[in-house]
Amino acid sequence: MTVMQAQTARPAGRSLWADAWARLRQNRLAFGGLIFLLFLMGLCLLTPWIAPYGYAEQNLSMGATPPSAAHWLGTDIFGRDLLTRILYGGRVSLAVGLVATAVAAGIGVLYGALAGYFGGRVDAVMMRVVDTLYALPFMIFIILLMLVFGRNLLLLFLAIGAVEWLTMARIVRGQVQALKNMEFVEAAVSLGLSRWTIIRRHLLPNALGPVIVYATLTVPSVMLFEAFLSFLGLGIQPPRSSWGLLISYGVETMEEYPWLLIFPGLALTGTLFALNFLGDGLRDALDVRAAKD
């Protein structure tokens, strides 16, 4: 993503990013997904000011009521407003999902590109490191982290990002390996470009497609991972909430109070759909060949 901002508009030819943005805007589904995500993020950012109730505000007389005019999405068994809790939960879930994925993508892309480009011994060592990390029981690693440093949202981002980058690195490495033997990369070498410029300008833009798709799939899995950690008592603690936590509590009471599962579920799947549409759209927008018929 930092690469994106580094490229600014040029005098005559537009950059790949400007072209991609123009194409993305023409893709209604993807652009709709982007708008939806931005809207959701805006809501979550503004939650402390717009939420109808406090997230811990209990009203035991209103325990587990279905949706009504006072509580649009109903209340949970403690009588807390579900809409409020979903909004507060969204702050955590979206932040964890997006930040951890960004961390994972950042490390993975860089690591994979370097391993793939340099190849040989460098690649062998770098990928054995990845293999070793794959083999580590990460649950235990994260539990240890949490025990040593205490529960900390930032640490949670980093910990999850540190798990997810491995696959990303493998994907990028494979892409770069295939690309680096193409003639246009040799042409770039013969022009006298530095290695870093070749990786940044010639290899990465051509390897981004699968990365973007994988990243959009990583976001929901990270959100569920956070729920799992929270469920174990390592993530978010009640009375605070996240979508994953709301869903896992909703599952327990699914038969009596279905709305406690349905609405948080809708929030998560809505985000998921929007992300997938946006991911597909981004991939197509960055592929100059697919965009024009």
């Binding site: 300008r201 833009p205 060949r289």
Partner: peptide, 12 residues
């Protein structure tokens, strides 16, 4: 077909 970066415009 292989010697030009498919994601770079002619100008770039």
């Amino acid at each position: 077909y292989a010697s030009l970066n498919p994601r770079m415009s002619v100008f770039a």
